[in-house]
Design a protein around this nucleic acid. Structure first.
Lengths: 213, 213
DNA sequence: GCTTGATTCAAACGAACGTTTGAATTATTT
DNA sequence: AAATAATTCAAACGTTCGTTTGAATCAAGC
């Protein structure tokens, strides 16, 4: 196999995994379903990834790490821009949300499938995923918590934690469970326009974050 | 078997199911694990509930229906109280959240296990659960949407849908994924005091709902 | 062209799963 | 007490699963 072809098999498996797991969940997606969708041999999974768990981890990490890097880079940029002054709440929220929201329009980067995978990581992580959730969700929150502390000095440490948690939840639910919204609004609300969604969620959360104690 | 004993077997199965599914998810929880935990015979599941899917549905419905009834009753009460005037946003949010938050202190009613089950229903419903999600999540949202429309006449129909969706997300995330918050706050924020959590989330969401367009 | 390494393949393994079955046991009704 | 109904039980079934295996094939290097 040419190097290009080696790459193709792994990529096909990763992409098929992403799509099927997003639709059905971790446990309910079998390797046989993945390999059939990827048009590769069943044993290719073990050859390239060793175990199913490792495959899922690889699938998640290939998106998760660059995504969080983008968020942190955006926040760093806004902080540098602000100089000595605290960053505006809206900017912090933008750093937190924009890289994720933009996935809506980027199927090549996981698109909405990845949004659903985020929800799965939170709701139904197997033991093998717990470390990733800690690392990519909880740890990264601390960075944003620190930034918010400077911008919301009137709030206690604990209060900022809680409000950041609420903001995260508002956001994750909005992007990962949009089918509920779509149904209850009889199709009037859809996850289609990144910028509109972003402005809406930022406005909602900024107001919540600023609400007096 | 006495009638009391009949009841005991079903109840033991339902309770064990609730606990194990909350911890491990729908697919990763086997009937053998459930029956072992419930100390009953494997075939008891099929005798009393027919199939695994039906068991899970029964387990969810036994909490979900009374919960939503409580929420709607609370909202009805607040509307009656308000007479001709629209209900205060905070009251609507209270109707939406209080019955769920109070589960924190009620292990006998599912407690925090049930909170996690809510997240599972959203993130990883199998096909057999889709109708329940539509019915108990999306449909019930319409009732609250109607109430909010009257209380927030300055907002468009679509905007209210979005904001209600955000509020729901902030809340579900807060109560169902509290382990993330606990970790990122190094144990300083915990889901312990119902009233405190409730006031916090209501304040956050009310501000978000009222934010100017 | 030969050797070595990488990759793919089909078959098989052992385990686990939800469901079914018919006998045994328990409870209720007559 | 006998008959009927309800419940429990252990074994079994057929299916599916992730993993392993050794042979076959392909690719790269000499």
């Amino acid at each position: 196999m040419a190097r290009e072809h080696i790459h193709a098999t792994k990529l096909a498996i990763l992409n098929a995994t992403e799509r099927l797991v997003a639709a059905n969940g971790f446990e309910a997606t079998s390797l046989r379903a993945i390999t059939a969708a990827a048009r590769v041999n069943l044993a290719a999974v073990n050859y390239h990834f060793a175990t199913k768990d490792a495959l899922i981890l690889a699938m998640l990490n290939r998106r998760m790490k660059p995504l969080n890097e983008a968020r942190l880079a955006l926040l760093d940029g806004f902080e540098k821009e602000a100089g000595e002054k605290p960053v505006r709440i809206e900017k912090i929220l933008e750093a937190l949300f924009r890289p994720v929201v933009e996935l809506i329009a980027q199927p090549a980067k996981g698109g909405r499938n990845f949004l659903r995978l985020l929800a799965l990581c939170l709701a139904a992580p197997g033991a093998f995923l717990k470390p990733l959730v800690q690392q990519e969700f909880a740890e990264k929150n601390r960075r944003f918590h620190r930034a918010l502390r400077r911008s919301l000095p009137q709030l206690s440490d604990v209060e900022v934690h809680w409000r950041l948690h609420f903001a995260q939840g508002a956001f994750f639910h909005a992007v990962a469970h949009s089918q509920v919204l779509e149904f209850s609004s009889s199709g009037r609300c859809r996850l289609t326009n990144c910028e509109t969604v972003l402005q809406r969620i930022i406005k909602f959360c900024a107001a919540g974050l600023r609400s007096p104690t």
